[in-house]
């Protein structure tokens, strides 16, 4: 298994043992990501961080990862990113960026953008999220958090809660969990339940899952409660939205039947879907999860640059 020179575009392109290899390397990166140890593994290497839409969390964690490894970063984001989008094709932008950098991370509003970028770029391209499509490093950091908190992924029950219809993180995550042998409970009102095309893929993978509207059931059975934001604009009217948002809110009260070691994850930012008083419970792992973005991205950067096998 070699990652040198590889693009990281879709989670499906990674074999099971490759996913676990990334998680193992990430584990070793944790002390460096925390700043407790230092390294110059990527000294002299340059990351081009191309953000055609804002995503502070993803961008900062990639940039932190690169700096922690002794490398440096070129950033095109915000206003600059959007003006580029109007004037120039993405194909041209990545060909320009590869002239200045050794690896590219791309965030783009159109689905399939990372696959296109990889086609035009000889340096490794890492997908930092494309439209409502893929965000493989988010999925890897979710998997890393589950494995490091619970010791395993296989055999665990993961309840996915909230906007399962439009939420890309839950789409990628569910496909990965299916391949790694976790069981899933899809907790959402019908209007925003998992789309058929994802369920079809899950079925073809032989996934074990069930659908429910009942958050209580999800909480009771889950080893992992993966909560996502329910967006107002998905609902025909305010009243309907308030009703749904209210019944899918995770509070201290709603957690009383949870398993003792159950962990709560959230891709962040959250709005009201997890009450602040939950933060101080041992279940709350979403800030650890956010931190885990750094070691996971460090692992990916060192591996695609061929510094670690």
């Amino acid at each position: 298994m070699s990652f040198k020179g590889r693009d990281i575009i879709r989670i499906e392109e990674l074999k099971e043992e490759e996913i676990y290899r990334i998680l193992d390397v990430a584990e070793k990166m944790v002390p460096v990501a925390r700043g407790e140890e230092t390294t110059d593994l990527l000294y002299g290497k340059v990351l081009a961080s191309l953000f055609f839409e804002p995503s502070t969390r993803t961008r900062l964690s990639f940039e932190s990862a690169m700096h922690r490894l002794g490398g440096s970063v070129l950033t095109i984001s915000g206003r600059e990113g959007t003006s580029l989008k109007k004037g120039e094709t993405l194909a041209d932008t990545v060909r320009m960026a590869e002239a200045y950098a050794d690896v590219i991370v791309l965030r783009h509003p159109n689905e399939g953008a990372a696959a296109l970028a990889a086609q035009f770029c000889s340096k490794p391209v890492i997908n930092g999220g494309d439209g409502s499509g893929q965000h493989p490093t988010q999925t890897l950091l979710d998997l890393f958090t589950i494995k490091s908190e619970l010791g395993a992924i296989k055999g665990k029950t993961v309840a996915l809660v909230g906007d399962l219809r439009y939420g890309r993180t839950v789409h990628s995550l569910s496909l990965a969990l299916a391949r790694l042998g976790a069981r899933m409970i899809m907790v959402a009102p019908e209007l925003i339940q998992m789309p058929t095309y994802i369920l079809d893929e899950l079925n073809s993978l032989g996934a074990k899952y069930e659908l429910t509207e009942d958050l209580g059931r999800g909480i009771e059975e889950a080893d992992v409660l993966y909560v996502t934001r329910i967006q107002r604009e998905r609902f025909p009217d305010e009243e309907e939205y308030m009703k749904v948002a209210g019944s899918y809110r995770v509070t201290l009260e709603s957690l009383k039947n949870a398993k003792e070691g159950m962990i709560i994850l959230h891709p962040l930012p959250r709005v009201d879907e997890i009450a602040p008083e939950v933060d101080s419970t041992p279940h709350a792992k979403y800030f650890v999860q956010a931190f885990n973005g750094v070691p996971v991205r460090m692992a990916i950067l060192t591996m695609v640059l061929g510094v670690i096998e």
Binding site: T89, N110, G112, A113
Partner: peptide
């Protein structure tokens, strides 16, 4: 054409 209007293959790209 891809049926997803937001797909990169439906944007102005040389592909």
């Amino acid at each position: 054409k891809c049926e997803n209007p937001n797909c990169i293959s439906n944007q102005r790209e040389p592909i």
